[in-house]
């Protein structure tokens, strides 16, 4: 359940478009925070710039709405100065993987004790729908009018390779699983990275024949495949469809971490 007393009631309704998945991700994150029983005074939300990064503005705790791509750098600073605080970062695919790409891999490498929730809508939502490093090949955006020709980043796999202690991926349709994954991330010492594939009906759906929110959700649902199922297909020597993405827990391990609560 969303912790209602963690929301800034006076700021709602938020600025997100009708059917934007970011609101759902806020709900699930607050649901997980509620499960942890954290206090508002000891929790900090940090974000960069983008639609996704506006999330901390709707949450009634201290927060840092920082510069584009630098959320993880600021969050690392908070954690180093005050390891007793719980730090949660909201970020977008552009914020995290384009301009903030280096901060992302190094925060994972250092394994700074925080939880990073990335709302991956495959697009620069806020600035009008430019292609991002996660725009799927062939997808139309304002900067790829003939279809994206570059391959996309797999953010969750990137976090695994870079060393994060906990990595999971879900979508804004899988609300229960997502809430559980965020809670697991909050519990894990070290960097927990949760990638959430979300819908941006305004700037992604509209250009990619997914104008209706329900179509976007159906697209997410039908292209998500459990990691276990993917592994089973490989084991059995069966082909894995190439338009799917894996969901579930990708890694949970115990590498040395920085900034863990004393």
């Amino acid at each position: 359940m969303i912790a209602p007393d963690w929301l800034r009631d006076d700021r709602l309704p938020h600025i997100y478009c009708t059917g934007c998945g970011n609101g759902t991700v806020i709900n699930c994150t607050l649901g997980a925070v509620e499960e942890m029983g954290w206090k508002r005074e000891e929790t900090v939300f940090v974000s960069g710039i983008g639609c996704s990064s506006r999330a901390p503005g709707y949450i009634l705790t201290d927060s840092l709405h920082t510069t584009h791509g630098r959320a993880l750098a600021f969050a690392t600073g908070v954690k180093m100065a005050r390891p007793d605080l719980n730090v949660v970062v909201f970020t977008g695919d552009g914020d995290l993987a384009a301009i903030g790409g280096n901060h992302f891999i190094h925060a994972c490498r250092r394994n700074v004790d925080m939880t990073v929730v990335c709302m991956n809508n495959h697009i620069y939502g806020m600035t009008g729908g430019q292609g991002s490093p996660t725009t799927p090949q062939g997808a139309i955006s304002t900067t790829t009018p003939y279809g994206m020709s570059e391959p996309a980043f797999d953010l969750a796999e990137l976090a695994v390779a870079a060393g994060a202690n906990y990595v999971a991926r879900w979508t804004s349709y899988h609300v229960k699983e997502l809430t559980k994954a965020v809670a697991a991330g909050l519990q894990t010492p070290g960097l927990a990275f949760i990638e959430v594939r979300t819908q941006c009906p305004t700037n992604y759906g509209r250009h990619n024949k997914l104008r209706r929110v329900s179509e976007m959700i159906e697209h997410l649902r039908s292209h998500a495949m459990l990691v276990e199922k993917r592994d089973r297909l490989i084991q059995e020597g069966k082909p894995v469809p190439d338009d799917i993405f894996t969901v579930g827990e990708l890694v949970r391990r115990n590498r040395p971490a920085m900034g863990v609560k004393p």
Binding site: M1, I2, P4, L7, L12, P13, H14, Y16, G19, C20, G21, N22, G23, T24, I26, N27, C28, G31, S172, Y173, V175, K176, T179
Partner: peptide
């Protein structure tokens, strides 16, 4: 309640 993006 969880999926409603607008906490409505």
């Amino acid at each position: 309640h969880m999926i409603c993006p607008d906490q409505a």
